[in-house]
Amino acid sequence: MALYLTRFSYTPETWGRLMKNPEDRREAARKYIESVGGKLHGFWYAFGAYDGYNLWEAPDNVSMAAVAIAIGGGGALSKFETTPLLTVEETLEALGRTQAIGYRPPGT
């Protein structure tokens, strides 16, 4: 299964609802990814450009996209970005394939 990193931010309205009724959103996130056969590896809140980060494992891109679309379409977030993560082994394999591509920079 592939790993995915998501970065998200709540809307001000969502923060307002959470202040009135605090809840552990890890359980909701776990339920969403498990519904497509995946696993939640971590859930963190943060300071900065994003309010939080999740590390997910999903069977494939379509499964992760379904979770991302469902969450992003729910209206509680102002930002939701997903990055597929590569293992070191996958990156080494990609590096090994680069010679066959024959890339030429523009203008050279």
Rank of each mutant, 00 (worst) to 15 (best):
T83H: 15
Y103L: 09
H41A: 05
Y45A: 05
P12C: 09
G75M: 02
L86F: 12
V62Y: 04
G38R: 07
L3E: 14
A49N: 08
E13R: 13
D60M: 11
T6E: 12
H41Y: 13
I69P: 01
G73M: 05
E34G: 03
F47Q: 11
I33R: 00
E89R: 13
N21S: 03
G73N: 03
G38D: 08
V67L: 03
I69C: 04
G73H: 02
A49S: 11
G96E: 07
V36E: 02
Y10W: 15
A46L: 11
W44C: 00
W56V: 08
P106I: 01
L95H: 10
E89C: 09
D24R: 00
R30N: 01
W56D: 12
T91P: 06
E81F: 08
K20E: 07
T11Y: 14
G48I: 08
A94R: 15
K31W: 01
T108F: 11
Y4K: 08
A70L: 08
N21E: 03
G75K: 02
S9K: 11
K79E: 13
I101A: 14
E81S: 10
A46Q: 12
F43L: 08
S9P: 05
E93S: 15
A46V: 07
T87A: 07
I33E: 02
E93H: 14
Y103T: 07
R30H: 00
A29Y: 00
Y10E: 08
P12E: 12
K31I: 05
T98M: 13
T11C: 14
L77I: 09
T83N: 15
T82R: 05
K20M: 05
T82N: 07
A28D: 05
T98N: 12
P105R: 04
H41R: 13
F43Y: 15
G38Y: 08
L18F: 06
S78I: 06
K20H: 01
M19V: 13
S78D: 05
R17W: 05
H41G: 06
P12L: 10
M64W: 03
P105Y: 01
E34V: 01
V88H: 10
I71K: 00
A94T: 15
I33T: 01
V67A: 02
A49H: 10
G102T: 09
P22T: 00
T91R: 10
M1P: 13
R30V: 00
H41S: 09
